[in-house]
Amino acid sequence: MFTGLLFCSPWMIGFLLLFVWPFVASLYWSLCRFDLINRPRWVGLDNYLRLVSEIGTDQGFGLALSNTVYYAALSVPLSVVIGVLLATLLSAKVRGQSVYRTLVFLPSVIPVVAASILWLWLLDPNDGLINYGLSWIGMDSQNWLNQSRSAFSGESVGVLSGWISGEPLRLFGSKDALVLMTVWGVGNFVVIYLAAISDIPNALYEAAEMDGASSIRKFWHITIPMLSPVIFFNLVMGLIRSVQTFTSVYVLSEGTGQPGGSLMMLSLQLFLSAFNDFEMGYASAMSWILFVVLLIATIVLFRTSRYWVHYRVAA
């Protein structure tokens, strides 16, 4: 008993200092007005009420929440779909397989700060590489990081109708740019899928081939079901990660969340509320709401853990 505790003591201390105490403190501060310099002042549920009242509006927490939801709703499924497709492709036994794998994986090891600098340049509306590529396939140039309106928003209907009457089609905005950047770094998901694919027994494919199944059928009826636990795991991990996105939006918007607040993600809003607006209480309350939302996701993950744990051990 004592030895075990001794071995675990670094983590125990860390757990108490870096988790338990912060949790208690932040819960208490979330019920206070607190600027970190003067003493906290109890205000009850005020901060939470303010947060709730901002939901559905285009300000403060409401704006950050809708931005984050948009980003997560687009980037997580897209990463999964593209990740699975790429992994399937990359599992094909062709010459140069490892080169292809490396090239797809490489972007995901680029440090976020460097990647953001790179994308700031690639996404330039006037002479950025991405718009150059779009013009190559006959698309209008997009405003990317200079446009607050996103592609999948109500206002895009107007843009589409304008396009029909001959105006340039400028759909994609800053959040879409962020999604693009995220998908570029999908390589680490691909690696996980690749590992899972290599665990799928060959016998399954061979049996299917005997039945004369096509590649697409094999993909749908063997690869996807066999991958489903890993896909689910990546969905939840991707969700947690996307909700915590901070560095990329900080660098892309130079810490402002511009243009038009469209890059104001929850984590950036939290940072600015705390250290620019001196509202530790409000920021703490925000982090607690965030926590509860993620907790629900985590519980879902654990409820279903038996499915994916089985494969991880097998791996």
Binding site: F19, A25, S26, A274, W288, L294
Partner: peptide, 16 residues
């Protein structure tokens, strides 16, 4: 703790 967001502990950790 693996799955907790860093936000919640950010301010108290700073104070600590």
């Amino acid at each position: 703790t693996m799955l907790l967001p860093w936000h919640i502990t950010m301010i108290p950790r700073f104070v600590l």
